[in-house]
Every structure is written in structure tokens, then in C-alpha cells.
């Protein structure tokens, strides 16, 4: 029994970090209505920024947030303005220009290979890392401290994002644009500014995930790839654009990954993850918390 409990805890903790990353993706999807396939590469970028900040300055890993969050926000904002916005303008007669998917996939490949070129293929472990191998012992259960902190940062970020969207002027404008772009522009909201702000926030959330991961996860140029695909599954599972959906979807995937190998060969877990994805597409395409009708 304890054996399962250990796996459940591991699954929930890791899953909540998946959920954190998915939060950024679901926000971007909710506003732009197109998936950003470079999201995993943004995570990779955030991890490298965190890694280099810590190794060059010796800061505590979590203090690297001070640099990672604004840097990733600006990167996302600039990415939207320079690469995605021109596509939206050129294809102004469609709501979700498919070309964006191709462009973001291109950015994914360029960023990953740029990282390979600049930093080499090495798997880099964070140094100095005061959290390395730190465990919380509760009887026979071991809880990884950096994963626990990652889970807490996921909950705090989800709470802060919810508050921001509900209670601030920009947050309300983001919701308005995601519901009806044309009506929002009649309220005096610039959809281009809102798109860029949403992309900036989504990207800085990828950065926060990076900071949460680096203390226990190696950094390498293609580190984003497995996360990117999982994240897309989570967003669909939870409901596109839903914050609780992203968190819950993340935990479900985390649990499948940690409990799967207990019952079957580990390679099957991937099959279960994608099986779940397909099942949802067939049975409930709007996801757990998605709205049934199209906004």
C-alpha cells in the first residue's frame, strides 16, 4: 500500500509541474485559438536562463525567477509581435490561422538547434544546487523537496493567474478578447496588445516551470520535446483555455506516468497517455473543464 502511496505522491508532484507548464500553453491557446508548438522550446530556454543565472552568479535556484520571468515575458511578447502577429494580420479573414502552427513548429526546431549549437549536447545538472537530492521523510515515504516546491509554485502561479484574469483591467481585457475579438475591439481593447501580453505571460509561465524543474531535472537542448507533447495532451484533456483543467490534466498525466510502471512495462505508459488523449477527443473533445460550445 505504502508503495503505491509513494508513487501517487511522486505522480501528483510531477504532474502539477506539467500542469504549470500547460497553464502557459492553455492561456495562449485560449486567447489566440492556435496551439504554440514552440512552448516546449520556451521551457528549454527558461531552463537555460535559470541554469546560467545560477551557475554564473551563484544565486539560489529559485531566486533566478527574478531574471527568468521578465526575460521570458519580453521574449514571448517579442515573438508574438515579430512572428505571429504578421500571420494574423495577413490572414485576417480567419480566426485561427493554421500557418501559426507551422511557424511555431519552425521556431521550435530553430531554438532547439540553436541551443545545441551554443551549449552543446551535454546534459547539465544545476550547480551550485542546494536542493540536490533533498528529501522530506514522512515515515517510510520520501518526498522530493524540489518537486514539492515545484508543486507549490504551480499552485501559486495558477492562483495568481486566476486572480489576474478576474480582477485586473488587463485580465478582463484578455478574457474579453478570448471570447469575442471583434466585440472587444469595440470596447477599445487592442487585440494585438492583448495577444502579445498573453503570449508574454504564457511564455513567462514556461520560464517559471523551467525554474521549478532545473533543481532536479537536467538541462539539454531538446529537453522541451517530451514536455511539449505532454503539455498539448494535458491542455486537450483539461479543456482548452481552462486553468483548473490544465492543473488537473497535468496531475492525471503525472499519475499515469508514475503508477503505470507499477502495473505494466514502463513503455506502455506513453501508450496510455496518448490513449487517454484519443479517448477524450472521441468522447469529450471539449475536455474536463472546457465549454461545450465554441466561443
Amino acid at each position: 500500500m505504502l508503495y503505491y502511496l509513494q508513487d501517487v505522491i511522486d505522480g501528483v508532484l510531477m504532474g502539477s509541474i506539467y500542469g504549470l507548464l500547460a497553464l502557459g500553453l492553455t492561456l495562449i491557446f485560449g486567447v489566440l485559438k492556435v496551439i504554440n508548438f514552440a512552448h516546449g522550446s520556451f521551457l528549454m530556454l527558461g531552463m537555460y536562463v535559470a541554469y546560467w543565472t545560477v551557475s554564473l552568479t551563484g544565486l539560489h535556484p529559485y531566486l533566478s525567477l527574478i531574471l527568468v520571468v521578465p526575460a521570458m515575458f519580453l521574449f514571448g511578447y517579442g515573438f508574438q509581435k515579430a512572428l505571429v502577429q504578421p500571420i494574423f494580420k495577413a490572414e485576417s479573414d480567419v480566426r485561427e490561422p493554421i500557418t501559426v502552427i507551422i511557424v511555431t513548429t519552425g521556431v521550435w526546431y530553430i531554438l532547439d538547434n540553436l541551443a545545441l549549437l551554443l551549449f552543446g549536447p551535454d546534459y547539465r545538472a544545476l550547480t551550485p544546487n542546494p536542493l540536490k537530492g533533498k528529501m522530506l521523510e514522512l515515515g517510510e515515504i520520501f518526498i522530493s523537496l524540489p518537486k514539492l516546491y515545484g508543486c507549490i509554485s504551480a499552485l501559486v502561479t495558477a492562483g495568481a493567474l486566476t486572480w489576474f484574469l478576474r480582477a485586473t483591467r488587463t485580465g478582463r481585457a484578455i478574457r474579453a478578447v478570448s471570447l469575442d475579438r471583434e466585440a472587444a475591439s469595440l470596447m477599445g481593447i487592442s487585440q494585438w496588445r492583448i495577444f502579445a501580453v498573453a503570449m508574454g505571460i504564457g511564455t513567462s509561465i514556461a520560464g517559471i516551470s523551467g525554474v521549478a524543474l532545473t533543481p532536479f531535472y537536467n538541462v539539454y537542448p531538446t529537453v522541451g520535446v517530451p514536455f511539449d507533447v505532454k503539455c498539448f495532451v494535458i491542455v486537450v484533456l483539461g479543456g482548452l483555455g481552462s486553468i483548473p483543467g490544465a492543473m488537473l490534466g497535468g496531475v492525471i498525466i503525472g499519475l499515469v506516468e508514475s503508477l503505470g510502471p507499477v502495473f505494466m512495462t514502463a513503455t506502455w505508459t506513453e501508450a496510455i497517455v496518448y490513449g487517454l488523449f484519443l479517448l477524450f477527443l472521441f468522447v469529450k473533445p471539449s475536455g474536463l473543464f472546457g465549454v461545450k460550445y465554441d466561443w
Binding site: A173, R175, L179, D180, E182, A183, L186, M187, G188, W295
Partner: peptide, 28 residues
């Protein structure tokens, strides 16, 4: 100010938030 045909409310937002969004411009 243009109040569009078919109302075009922000369906999943509260009445209060819809009104708040109406006052988005700096002037209002």
C-alpha cells in the same frame, strides 16, 4: 461608440465584468 448587432456580449463573463470592460478606454 458602437453597440453591435446581436449584442455580442462576453458570454462567459459576469454582467458586472461586461460593464467594466465597456469602460476600458482611458477616457472612460
Amino acid at each position: 461608440i458602437h453597440v453591435p448587432e446581436g449584442r455580442r456580449l462576453f458570454s462567459l463573463m459576469s454582467v458586472r465584468d461586461n460593464l467594466e470592460v465597456g469602460a476600458h478606454s482611458r477616457r472612460a
